[in-house]
Design a protein around this nucleic acid. Sequence first.
DNA 1: CCATCATATGCCCATATTGGCATGCGTCAA
DNA 2: TTGACGCATGCCAATATGGGCATATGATGG
Lengths: 116, 116
Amino acid sequence: MVGMARAATTSDVFNAIAEPQRRQILVLLRAGERPVTELAQELGMTQPGASKHLRVLREVGLVRDRKAGRQRLYGLDARGLQPVHEWTGGFEQFWNASFDRLDAYVQDLKQTRQKE
Amino acid sequence: MVGMARAATTSDVFNAIAEPQRRQILVLLRAGERPVTELAQELGMTQPGASKHLRVLREVGLVRDRKAGRQRLYGLDARGLQPVHEWTGGFEQFWNASFDRLDAYVQDLKQTRQKE
DNA sequence: CCATCATATGCCCATATTGGCATGCGTCAA
DNA sequence: TTGACGCATGCCAATATGGGCATATGATGG
C-alpha cells in the first residue's frame, strides 16, 4: 500500500456528518421517523441517493431503521453526536480567548520590532 | 460534469475536523503555539504531512500562523468550532430520548404481532 | 401469480483526499 | 557568501466518495 485516501466515512461520526446532506437528513429526522422516499423528496435528492446517505448514517449508528409494511422508516438515534458535542465543547474556553491571543501576538510583534 | 465526490475539505469546518490527525493537531494547539516540526514529531507524522493538515486547518480558519524567525508558529483559533458545537447541541434533547423511542418501537412491534 | 410500490445495490465516472518524496524558498548562523 | 534549518509545495499513487442509472429485492394488493 503506497497511498491512502481518507478514513472510511462509515467508520466514524465526524466523517459521517461532514456531508451537508447527511446533516440535513438528521435535522429532518428530529421531527420524527420518515420513509426513504419522503426524505429524498423533501431534500431534493434521488431515492438511491437518499438510501446511500442513510446507509452511512445507519452504519455509524446515527439512525435506526424499522420495517413498516412496504416502507422502511428511518429514525434518529442522536447518541452518537454526543462525542462530537463534547469534543468541540473542549474548545469552548478558546472561543472568546482567540481575539485576546491575537492581540497578544500583535503586542509581541511590536516589542520585537522596537528591540531591533 | 457527470460525477462529484465530496465538498472540498477546505470549504467547511465539519469536513476539516473529519480527519483524526487534524483533530489531534487542534488538541495539541490548546496548550499553545507550536512550530510545524514540533507538531509533526509529537503526532508521529512527516513534516510535509503536518504542513498539509495545517494548511487545511488554516483555510477554514481554525488555526492562525505567525512567522517567528525561521519557524512558523501555528496557534489555535477555535471560533470556527462553535457552529459545530451548536449544531450537535441541537440534538441534545434526543440523546436521552433515544432509548425511550427504541422502547416505543418494541412496544409497537409487539402490538402489531398480537393483532396478526 | 402478477403488477406495483418502496428500497437497497451494483457499476461507472469524475473528483477529492492523504501519504511519501523530492524540491523550492526564505532565514539564520558562521 | 555559504550551508543548514524549517516549511510549503508539487507530483504521483492508491482510495474513498457522491451522483446518475439500471436493476435486484421484498412486500402488498388484486
